[in-house]
Computed example of a mutant assay.
Amino acid sequence: MGGGSNGRWSTLGDISALEKKAKETLQSGKRNVFISFATEDINEVNLLRAQAKNEKSDIEFNDHSVREPYNSERAEYIKQKIAERIARTSVCVVYLSDNTAQSDWVRWEVDKSVELGKKVIAVHAKDGYHGPRPEWITRHNIKIVPWAGLSSEL
């Protein structure tokens, strides 16, 4: 602990600011979303994230997904941290590509989302996904929608 506050909030203003931010988030109507994707698709996923921040876009969400890989070689630790993020959301959006279809981590994130009772939606770019359908899509009866149709599914 630092700053000489003896582990306490430094002012009542700190608490008020946090409370205000939480209320704004809840009142904004945005869904809390976890985006599951393969690292190789980061550029496409960042476009989706940017679109959600654009006021002219009809896609709106608060992104709780992992932006940087966890600095750990321990799979159980990584799973714990990802599960904490998934638990804070209502929807898991899977960016569907050849990379995600083959990713054990994406499969695990989808399984964990379903286990936690979260809605799961798979999205693809406008040209569509033409690769093999991952078994987890069929097993969990996951709807596949084009990127442009995501807002109506959230």
Rank of each mutant, 00 (worst) to 15 (best):
A22Y: 05
D58S: 15
D98I: 02
V114M: 10
I15N: 01
S103I: 01
E135R: 05
L116F: 04
I86L: 07
W108S: 01
A17L: 10
A17I: 09
R49A: 06
F61R: 06
S65Y: 04
N99V: 00
A83K: 08
A87T: 13
L47G: 12
H64Q: 10
N32T: 12
S57R: 14
Q80K: 12
E153W: 03
G2Y: 07
D98C: 04
M1S: 14
H124Y: 02
S97M: 10
T89Y: 04
H140Y: 08
L26T: 06
I137E: 04
A75L: 09
S16Y: 09
D41G: 09
A122T: 01
G7M: 11
G149E: 08
L154R: 08
A22K: 04
K119H: 11
E44H: 09
E44S: 12
V106S: 04
E68V: 09
D63W: 05
E76H: 07
N6R: 15
I42E: 12
F61C: 06
S113Y: 00
R107E: 01
A75N: 04
V120Y: 00
K56D: 07
T25V: 12
D104Q: 10
V110R: 01
R49P: 12
E135A: 08
T89R: 14
I42S: 11
E109S: 01
K53W: 08
K143E: 15
S28R: 09
H124Q: 02
D41E: 03
N141E: 14
Y77L: 14
A50E: 11
W9A: 13
I144Y: 06
P134S: 00
K119W: 11
K30D: 14
G3T: 10
